[in-house]
Nucleic acid binder design. Structure first.
Lengths: 143, 143
DNA sequence: CTACATGCAAACGGTTTGCACGTGT
DNA sequence: ACACGTGCAAACCGTTTGCATGTAG
């Protein structure tokens, strides 16, 4: 599964006439093993601990490549940071964002998606993508 | 209805020990008559045309007050701009965002809201707010 | 050997803030 | 009078870009 994504990314690199570099490999490996919704800053900080000579700009640029290749997606949950999430085999999912601890859980609900499609239809609107986020307190923070 | 919101804002100003100023009145009047999801920049630019001596900072600060008073809400639709929408009597609504022309339509769907609540429950999550945006092409831009 | 990639620092874009001056109460 | 508000310009914060240098193919 991790390997599958590495392959997708590698194919993309080749297809686009780009190059496989040490930095890209390091960032790729790290991203694939990391938590699901890291911000650029978090990714950079943790990466930097092991690899002090990787620049912030390189992390930014590489994450954009991940998004371009289809193994990651840029998300914004309104905290002013750009985050990247793993794309799990075409599955779309939405987010439960804890406003206290910042934890992000994922869920999927086909019925909601169908209703969204119905709403869009009734407006003559053609959906390309959607974003559904529930903000509140996670089970732990409620207590 | 416009008057009702003016009253809400005015009460808020008094309650907080703030002051009614010319600028605030102008911005309030303008905001209440404006399109539903203006960005700060748009609001500022149009306002500025009539009132060249109103500063950007004042617009920002005043919009925050509107949000604080409950007559407006800050929204982010991922284009890097902060927008303010009117709050219609406690009604929540979601958005259809046209990725071509930028137009934002609103909708409301109680069934989706119920399903959201059900999902949150199943995670032990307590919803404070939510955001649902459908991105795509509006009826006009599809043609 | 050439084109692409990198790290740094400087630029960017939207928002916020510090400050001296203005104004509502 | 005093505290709050204003406009301007400078600061801010996360992200992007220009450039000289490094490196994959």
């Amino acid at each position: 599964m991790k390997q599958a994504k590495k392959n997708i990314f590698h194919d993309y690199i080749v297809r686009e006439g780009l190059k496989t570099t040490q930095q890209r490999e390091i960032i790729l490996e790290f991203f694939l093993s990391s938590a699901k919704h890291m911000s650029i800053e978090e990714l950079y900080r943790e990466l930097r601990a092991k690899h002090p000579n990787i620049g912030y700009a390189t992390v930014c640029r590489t994450l954009k490549l991940f998004a371009g290749s289809g193994i990651a997606r840029e998300i914004h949950i309104g905290d002013g940071q750009t985050r990247y999430e793993h794309i799990a085999d075409g599955e779309h999912h939405d987010h439960l964002v804890c406003t206290r601890c910042g934890k992000i859980a994922e869920f999927e609900n086909k019925t909601i998606e169908k209703l969204q499609a119905a709403v869009a239809d009734s407006y003559g609107f053609l959906i390309e993508s959607h974003k559904l986020e529930l903000y509140g307190l996670c089970a732990k923070c409620r207590r």
